[in-house]
Write a protein that binds this DNA or RNA. Sequence first.
DNA 1: GGAGACGAGATTGTATACATAATTGTGCTT
DNA 2: AAGCACAATTATGTATACAATCTCGTCTCC
Lengths: 228, 228
Amino acid sequence: MNHMQMPPWTVETVATDLERAIHEHRLPPGTKLGEDELGEVYGISRTLVRAALQSLGHRRLVEHRRNRGAFVAQPTVREAREVFEARALLEPRTARSAAERSTPESMAILRAHIRDEHAALAAGEHGKALHLSGQFHIEIARMADQATIEAFISELVARSSLIIALYWQRRAAMCESHAHNALITAFENKDGTLAEDLMKQHLLDLVTSLDLRNITSMPGSLREALAR
Amino acid sequence: MNHMQMPPWTVETVATDLERAIHEHRLPPGTKLGEDELGEVYGISRTLVRAALQSLGHRRLVEHRRNRGAFVAQPTVREAREVFEARALLEPRTARSAAERSTPESMAILRAHIRDEHAALAAGEHGKALHLSGQFHIEIARMADQATIEAFISELVARSSLIIALYWQRRAAMCESHAHNALITAFENKDGTLAEDLMKQHLLDLVTSLDLRNITSMPGSLREALAR
DNA sequence: GGAGACGAGATTGTATACATAATTGTGCTT
DNA sequence: AAGCACAATTATGTATACAATCTCGTCTCC
């Protein structure tokens, strides 16, 4: 529709564009991603759209239903728990490693993320703020110089944004930036142990801010929508 | 060529078949995977072959070079280290969890893996033995009932088989089965702490059995093949 | 009037055709 | 004879055409 810069859309750029839209909750969980429709939006054929959707499917950001098409994924409560279990295994140790390797350049990048996040939040762009908040975690993995783990964390962060869209309970305010600020100070002091502990606590806080009682759960929104 | 059972080849079955061939070192790192060629082998069109190759590409089992095609991946020394770093983060804790949840059924599956692995080794089928050895690790993740982590470990195990193909130094014999047997006894006793320690040591042993000095490294096999 | 079956429309699954880039072989020039 | 340029071939990148399947509206029958 818009896309005013109109880059030469490739499979990768389309996948990235869609991922960002999902990450920013512009495409909520369950949204149908029709091939013809997307092809028209980006001005490419279904071939490339399918490749992009398959790519997102591998990252569990979209679910493919046979002969039904692609939909923005709707992680179950179980999957949500699994995602944060995996993050708990990967991220604290990665934060420790990142703290021990922190450089002025990487610190500047982190601080820029925080700044942009605050600006987005102030401008009411919650989606963008959430995206940047996720990028913060990915940047830490990049600081640790572990591309493989970074790829895993990137996937987990993206899925987390879907989980937040589904299970976030609004009473917990956006206190994330505090946790991120604390992490930054740990990085500044190259205090790996502190960074590891802070990250562990940060992830715990995130989980407890979700409503993961599997009562309504699966059908997505129907039961919840009709609850009265 | 053969494929005597000839299932109705789908994208998934072709990807699985290729992955197994790579895992068993029938397709060594660097092998060109031509689309027309594969299409003829499986009796399907390039469309499905491309989808399968893209799937393997996302798991880092094949590398895509623009306008050049797909090749069985050749992990660098750096990537090799990263893969085992990631495994060190994921697998010990997963083994602990698996031990605490071990059931007679899951133990039977594990023992069957060991038995088949020994049989394959006795029959000189090193590829099949290596494949089963990897499946053992994946089965543990399945026991832990963590599908997300299982998917990560599955990818890491597959990449490990490529790393072994490239960097294995033969002087270290196939002592793996001993480690796996020790793990089984820990599982039998539901000793999570022991299982975690054993897995940690097992992965360390694996890394030290590799030659990860980045001397010859990258070009793959050409330089090594012509070294004299 | 409601339940079930049938068929039209729409969407995905697969194959093929065309476009484009890389490789290789050939021949000319020096 | 060696080196470069160009053309033919081969393989991948992309689009389109056809086939199969599902959805949904309508019609019929009870």
